[in-house]
Simulated assay, not measured.
Amino acid sequence: MFGSSQMNGANAYAKVGIETGVIAASPHKLIVMLFDGAIVSIGNAIQHLNAGEIAAKGKSISKAISIIDNGLRASLDKKSGGDIAVSLDALYEYMNTRLILANLNNQAELLLEVQNLLKDLRSSWEAIAPTTASTVEPPVLNTDALAPRSAKFLEA
């Protein structure tokens, strides 16, 4: 009784954290989050496969396929992305094919292959992260923040 309600509360808390992260994330960070989601889903699929939980394995693989197809592939701009976008599209299609085969044949090695490809892409994506204002040091002010200031009043 306590375990299920506690787990539901934890899941709800995690979901709120993810939703808040998505709202505040830059487009670059959103792609990283998609990579993370697919990597975690494949890791879950491997655990379910090893535990003999076939239905849960299939659900996790389906989630990874959905993230790759509806997230990563859908975000590609083939017009302005040129050859890189076309190559990534083909790689994402390859990953989905491998995931389907892994699901059908219960092959953990195919799951690991796709997971490693996603990790490599994530690392590359992180390496090209744009610098943000938070990485730039704030300017040094020549005033004492605690010093008293003269009041300015408006007269009517």
Rank of each mutant, 00 (worst) to 15 (best):
Q115S: 13
S80V: 08
A90V: 02
L101K: 08
E93Y: 13
A74L: 05
L88D: 02
K59L: 13
K29H: 03
V40W: 09
S123W: 10
A38Y: 08
P27C: 06
E113W: 07
I67N: 14
E109N: 00
K78E: 13
A45P: 06
L111P: 03
V136N: 14
Y92V: 01
L110C: 02
W125H: 09
K59W: 05
A108N: 02
E137F: 07
I68F: 11
N96D: 12
G58N: 11
A24T: 01
N106R: 11
I128R: 08
Y92G: 02
D36C: 11
L34C: 05
L99R: 04
G81I: 02
E53L: 07
V22F: 13
S66C: 15
A25G: 02
G71K: 01
N70C: 07
A145C: 02
S75N: 06
I65V: 12
P148E: 12
P27V: 02
R122Y: 05
I46M: 14
A145T: 01
D36F: 12
L110S: 04
E126M: 04
A133Q: 15
I42F: 11
D89H: 07
S66L: 15
H28E: 09
V86Y: 04
S75Y: 03
V22Q: 13
R149N: 08
T135P: 01
I65T: 13
G37R: 04
A147W: 09
L49C: 13
I61V: 15
P130C: 05
A108D: 07
L118P: 05
L34S: 03
N96A: 10
A38F: 05
N103W: 01
S62Y: 00
Q47M: 13
L101A: 13
I23Y: 08
A24K: 07
T131R: 14
N96F: 09
I61T: 11
E109G: 00
A102G: 03
P130T: 02
L30S: 09
A147K: 12
E93S: 15
N105Y: 06
K78I: 03
I39Q: 15
D69S: 14
I39L: 15
V86P: 00
